[in-house]
Nucleic acid binder design. Structure first.
Length: 558
DNA sequence: GCCGTTTTCGGCCCGACTGTTTTCAGTCG
């Protein structure tokens, strides 16, 4: 028996489902595989044991078609069915899904009829006017495809921050193992924790740069010099890495310059007055007589003008969090697993909030299902005591601004109000919609303010001033959504919100145990905006939080 | 492909939007 965990099995079933969608006209066959994947994924027992015990076929959604596929995967680690499907299509066919409004059906047609297997080939076909004549396609679709190709190309040179952090730290470790390297630092936009980056900057302190440069091809490809102190390379075939070489006595200044931003560095150097020798940045600031400025606060020179430096919020300040999904809706892990993850983070409290019934696509819960979940939460809460557990929901703000669940929201300790539908309203309509939701006394937290998906789609347009004023007036918490694809609210808007009296909460919007770590990415936003612990609700002690939530859920106080 | 006190075939399936159609298919959240 090969050791396959349930997630590996589910991934293979999902891949089969995608291939079926490409080729089959019957949408229900692919959906059956997806359903089976979800079933396996949310299994409370070992998938291998399910197979050996013979209970596989009494599992809902698994019959004589999918059952043997799962059995083969679990016993051999492979699927001949999946291999056949893979052989029918070119590798990389799913790359085409990066074009907006291209789904599996259209990709299937493009491949079958025109032999299109890549974005380049798609662009050529569209330019040759071959796409417009296909069934289900027309001239507008062809035009949109060309726009989509341009969109995807632009995105190819941009990356979400975690990719840069991972690449930078890996290279840093590898460099540190070289004898001639005395010190290293990841700098640039990665160190400033910009949400979207174009490259990774690494500063290398050494007496023998040429000896280090010789070894760079071990970590990156396409190594080429930019100038005598700077070398460029490509990590993992996609991420540009810029190496800044320096002697140890100039390490401090080189790190500062390579970290940026331009405006900050210029103001710093003007203030320092001369080129300072320093083996690290702290020493550099000290010699310049300038209190240290955290890298996140260096987008402009404002911080240099300030007399007092705020102590930026740190992940260790967080004592708990809200907005955590479970297998009851679209999360990948059980209530017990998610609470365990919160406890492992050292939290004193955790709020569970699955989707509401209107979020059909995310398997939102009916009120009856909520009752069942709350019974389970109560049971699991005992096991993680003294950590406290709050029973919440991420309820949809409906298009008219009323809240999903209506008066049934009384069932919850807290309510995250979010928009998941009808996102193309005008700014005025969207603002009114959110303002109305904020007037509902059940609402505790306003979730992912703009609904943006970084590198994928812009958020909906809203009147920030009016919404922040209402959030403050209603004493609703404004979520800082820590999912690196969202990081919503944008850090550039935070100061405005703060000035209007808004209180924040850093939430992971976790859909798995691993994503509980998104509370850390949430602090990136807070820190870039200059927030301290006192402006973040979930740095408060659990008794205070419980009291606050109780007050909010009794309508009289509102 | 799965399912069935409406059981072996026909239904499964939310709702808005877009572009393609001339009544609907594909995409998205």
């Amino acid at each position: 028996m090969i050791a396959m965990d349930k997630y590996q099995v589910a991934r293979m079933l999902d891949e089969i489902a995608r291939y079926i969608q490409l080729s089959e006209t019957n949408p229900f066959k692919s959906r059956a595989f997806e359903r089976a994947a979800r079933r396996i994924e949310t299994l409370e027992r070992d998938v291998a044991e399910l197979v050996t015990s013979g209970d596989l076929y009494s599992t809902p959604g698994i019959g004589k078609g999918i059952g043997p596929v799962i059995t083969e995967i679990v016993t051999t680690g492979d699927s001949t069915y999946l291999d056949e499907l893979r052989n029918q299509y070119p590798p990389g066919i799913f790359d085409l899904l990066r074009i907006p409004n291209l789904g599996l059906k259209k990709v299937g047609i493009l491949y079958e009829q025109l032999g299109v297997t890549s974005i380049d080939e798609l662009e050529k076909a569209a330019k040759d006017n071959l796409v417009a004549g296909l069934p289900g396609f027309g001239s507008k679709t062809q035009q949109k495809i060309l726009e989509g190709v341009a969109f995807a190309r632009k995105r190819e040179s941009q990356f979400l921050l975690p990719r840069g952090i991972e690449a930078g730290e890996l290279i840093r470790e590898q460099l540190a193992a070289i004898d001639e390297v005395e010190d290293t630092e990841v700098a640039g936009s990665v160190r400033r924790r910009m949400e979207i980056i174009r490259n990774v900057n690494v500063v290398v302190s050494t007496r023998a740069p040429e000896r280090v440069i010789e070894q760079l091809p071990r970590f990156v490809s396409d190594v080429e010099p930019i100038d005598e102190k700077t070398v460029k390379g490509i990590a993992r075939g996609e991420m540009p890495v810029i190496f800044h070489f320096t002697f140890p006595e100039d390490f401090g200044l080189t790190v500062l310059r390579a970290t940026g931003g331009k405006e900050f560095v210029a103001a710093f150097e003007a203030k320092a007055g001369r080129k300072l020798k320093a083996t690290n940045e702290e020493q550099l600031f000290e010699k310049a007589g300038i209190p240290f400025v955290e890298p996140e606060r260096r987008e402009d020179a404002e911080e240099l003008k300030r007399k007092k430096r705020p102590s930026l919020v740190h992940p260790s300040d967080l004592r708990g969090t809200f907005h955590v999904h479970t297998t009851y809706s679209d999360g990948r892990n059980s209530v017990a697993d998610m609470l365990g993850a919160a406890r492992d983070l050292g939290f004193d409290y955790c709020g569970i909030s699955d989707h509401s019934v209107a979020a059909f696509y995310a398997r939102g819960l009916t009120p009856d299902q909520v009752k069942i979940q709350q019974t389970e939460i109560a049971r699991e809460a005992k096991k993680v005591a003294p950590m406290r557990v709050f029973r919440g929901t991420e309820a949809d703000i409906l298009p008219d601004g009323t809240m999903d669940y209506g008066e049934d929201l009384d069932m919850f300790d807290f309510v995250v109000a979010s928009i998941h539908s009808r996102m193309q309203m005008t700014e005025e309509e969207m603002t009114e919609r959110i303002l109305r939701a904020l007037d509902d006394p059940h609402v505790t937290i306003l979730g992912h303010l703009t609904g943006r998906r970084l590198l994928t789609r812009d958020g909906y347009r809203i009147d920030y001033d009016r919404i922040f004023d209402k959030v403050a007036e209603r004493r609703v918490l404004l979520e800082i959504n820590g999912n690196p694809q969202r990081l919503d609210v944008d850090w550039r808007q935070v100061r405005n919100a703060l000035d209007r009296g808004v209180l924040f909460t850093i939430n992971p919007d976790a859909h798995s145990v691993k994503e509980m770590g998104y509370v850390v990415s949430g602090t990136w936003v807070a820190r870039k905006a200059g927030l301290t612990a006192k402006e973040i609700f979930n740095t408060r002690p659990v008794d205070e939080v419980e009291e606050w939530l109780k007050k909010r859920s009794s309508p009289k106080s509102n």
